[in-house]
């Protein structure tokens, strides 16, 4: 039986001005899994993580990491976790090597062990060549990798990643995903990550919790969540002016058909297989398909499904806004 590494029960954070950032959240993370917190900006992802890593005090509820309470045994929690924050916290004026060594100092790792481990980690994230260069000269992807190395310096049992690929380009993002997967395999760590990219949660996480307005609104594996959305959307137009809704509905895997402005909006499982079958069925009955499009579930649709709104005007503090801008600017540095 796998044991739970993180246990959270009724965790709540109310900020000074009465803003409820996290509202009675409960979940558990099993040993060795990658657990993702998915949600829009301001949903309460980072606030939840900050309570787990002992940086924020919960207003209500309890949480434990490896059996240590995050409030009463905060000191123990800090020793066994690694944190890769959303922001680029490495010091611009120091070299990559100096930055990782500073992290080692903060954990009190003996100098000789620290030196060996720092070099190992820099090798792992492929920064050995740049270890003596100032971080100022690093690209966004290199900075991310350096943050990873820092977060791993104390050989943590649980690694927390806050928006690990925020602001990075597609190639760099894929490379970071590879590192994260390798870490999990090589060290058998448990990972807790937050993200607002569905494809990221999809590529990495064993289980996902979708959070919005401080509440978990759905939880499960990526495939479970996608299925809960009811599958892909196929849009079809035909030349003939006839209602073929019933005919389409008779095709296997088709769940729902709606006629909108002369075209059919079809919800179907495994759309890439179902769409050709629909075309074939229509063709056999003598209809001519003039247009077809296939849309797989996106982040937007997940939210549409669960919250009914696609765009968000989240109230954001000025501080958070500026921090966000600094993070993005550093991510884009070359």
């Amino acid at each position: 039986m796998t044991k739970n590494v993180i246990e959270v029960e009724g965790l709540t954070k109310v900020f000074n001005r009465g803003f409820v950032a996290v509202d009675h959240v409960s979940f558990s993370v099993k040993e060795g899994e990658i657990f993702g917190f998915l949600g829009p900006n301001g949903a309460g992802k980072t606030t939840t993580m900050n309570m787990l890593i002992t940086v924020l005090k919960p207003t209500e509820g309890r949480a434990s990491v490896l059996g240590y309470d995050v409030v009463k045994q905060a000191g123990m929690v800090r020793k066994v976790i690694g944190v890769v924050p959303q922001e680029y916290t490495a010091d611009e004026d120091l070299s990559g090597y100096e930055n990782v060594m500073l992290c080692a100092d903060l954990y009190g790792i003996p100098k000789d062990v620290a030196k060996r481990r720092t070099l190992e980690l820099l090798e792992l994230v492929e920064l050995t060549q740049f270890k003596d260069k100032r971080v100022e000269t690093y690209s966004g992807g290199m900075r991310r990798r350096l943050e990873l190395a820092c977060g791993l310096i104390n050989t943590p049992k649980v690694l927390f990643l806050d928006e690990p690929t925020l602001g990075l380009d597609v190639q760099t993002r894929a490379a970071i995903w590879d590192y994260i997967k390798r870490l999990k395999e090589e060290y058998g760590m448990t990972l807790f990550m937050t993200t607002h990219y569905l494809e990221e949660a999809d590529a990495l996480c064993d289980r996902i919790a979708i959070i919005d307005h401080g509440k978990i609104i759905a939880m499960g594996s990526p495939s479970e969540l996608k299925e809960s959305l009811g599958g892909d959307i196929i849009t079809i137009s035909i030349k003939e002016d006839m209602d073929v809704s019933e005919l389409i509905r008779s095709v296997d895997n088709v769940k729902e058909v709606k006629k909108e402005n002369g075209s059919y909006r079809i919800k179907a499982e495994s759309g890439e297989v179902t769409a050709p079958i629909i075309i074939e069925v229509l063709r056999r009955r003598g209809y001519t398909v003039t247009r077809l499009s296939l849309t797989e579930p996106t982040l937007n649709e997940v939210y549409l499904e669960h919250t009914g709104k696609s765009m968000r005007d989240v109230e954001e503090s000025r501080e958070a806004f500026i921090t966000h801008r600094i993070t993005l600017r550093r991510a884009r540095s070359r």
């Binding site: 940086v55 800090r78 959303q86 922001e87 916290t89 903060l106």
Partner: peptide, 14 residues
């Protein structure tokens, strides 16, 4: 605090 360094340090046992 603004750059996130403080939170990072606060999450370590220092």
């Amino acid at each position: 605090r603004r750059l996130g360094f403080l939170d990072k340090v606060l999450s370590t046992p220092v």
